[in-house]
Design a protein around this nucleic acid. Structure first.
Lengths: 231, 231
DNA sequence: AACAGCGGAATTGTATGCAGAACGTGCCGC
DNA sequence: GCGGCACGTTCTGCATACAATTCCGCTGTT
């Protein structure tokens, strides 16, 4: 999972600095939910927990802040980002458009191998729909979307889309518990795959947009009920 | 110009840490071309130049790296980003799509005041087309695009678009020397404004996409001739 | 009893020192 | 004469120490 956020040169070099290691550890904990939105990140405490000095901890926190996973203010502890509802909706909307772009470009630009890879990822997901292993499903789902990022043949766009996906990740965890959702998700994927393989850009983009916006609505239902139960 | 890259809370608090100050200074120098792509950023030297310790310099460099303006590899000096031609084309393409999205949303969502602001910025540019002051034109041009970001009513999308714009900035400087380009640019803007004010989303998006892709082609011509003259 | 002002404690921001990795230089072997 | 290797220098990565700011609780006043 953490590999998803690795830039190419990092993957090649093998991250060897403590700061990078910490960044990935913290990012995983945030996305996995071990560090809930709003949690304060105490530099000294984290330094103790990881048995390093404050210097790499600070660096990691700043990098996370630049990525949007945490928010910092001068002379105040960094806190795990807790975007407003409106902002979160905006992030979902942007993600929908970005993913739609990737899907659209993929429809026009994918090579034969890339199309096969997309089909393979799609088939893998089909098998997992009824498997009941949310973790594996999640990983394969990321691989499916990753295939579309690669097929767009635009590394920068792929980065933007993936970054957005990661930033939204902490707020999508609940949906993977909802196994009924998986089957519907697969049907939506199916429409995307079909359009991409046929080279129909507009249809692929629209199918993907619909897919992501459905995810967004799922979140809204969950967030709404959670907010209600908190009252 | 540096204000463009300020997040809201930074602008409110007034950046008070050395690291943030350095980040903006360096970002400006990179975007203005004082630090050319490929230049190595020596931490010790920068610390001397700004009369601070290496610590805030390091932080600033890392933040710039996270923003994509510089590239870092472990145990090696950071260098001002010099994306490959292909990657740069991808960045332009992504920028075109993002700006098109903003323009499209603006067509649907802009309030009355926002529409007036857009028209005002557009008129300001009209006056500057023949003024021959590239710096002022540049600032007003950013304001024009900024009006469209705001009108999209999606802060996250606005950030993505602006960030992309800033990352590409170092490679667009040449075009502002080309005064003949300004008039054409204004005509393109005109099509965008007209569509936005009429609420025609698709047409606004297409006009903006065309505008940015023209900018991209302008760059290609410049980059191509520069590469040729270097041989 | 509630609030304003103040002082200490805790935490972030910055400086400095040290260890290890990467590059340049000169020597040696071929 | 040319390529490879070892050494020394230089720079980055990390640790630690100090300074500045914020937060929390206290006291005194109204």
């Amino acid at each position: 999972m953490s590999d998803l956020s690795l830039a190419p040169q990092e993957a090649r070099a093998g991250r060897r600095t403590l700061a990078d290691e910490l960044r990935h550890q913290l990012a995983d904990q945030i996305m996995y939910g071990a560090l809930a939105p709003g949690t304060a990140l105490d530099e000294t405490e984290l330094a103790r927990r990881f048995a390093v000095s404050r210097t790499p901890v600070r660096e990691a926190i700043r990098l996370l802040a630049a990525g949007g996973l945490v928010e910092t203010r001068p002379h105040r502890a960094a806190v795990v980002a807790r975007p407003s509802h409106q902002r979160l909706i905006g992030m979902f909307e942007a993600m929908a458009e970005l993913e739609a772009l990737c899907a659209g470009f993929s429809a026009e630009r994918m090579s034969g191998n890339e199309r096969h890879a997309l089909e393979a990822a799609h088939e893998e997901l089909r098998a997992l729909v009824h498997g009941g292993d949310p973790q594996r499903y999640h990983e394969s789902n990321e691989a499916f979307h990753g295939a579309l990022y690669a097929g767009a043949h635009n590394a920068y766009l792929a980065e933007l889309t993936l970054t957005t996906r990661l930033r939204v990740a902490p707020f999508r965890r609940a949906q993977f518990r909802n196994l009924g959702r998986l089957a519907k998700s697969h049907v939506e994927h199916d429409r995307v795959v079909e359009a991409v393989l046929r080279g129909e850009r507009a249809r692929a983009a629209e199918a993907m947009r619909a897919h992501i916006m459905t995810v967004c609505r799922e979140y809204e239902v969950y967030a709404g009920s959670a907010a209600a139960s908190r009252v």
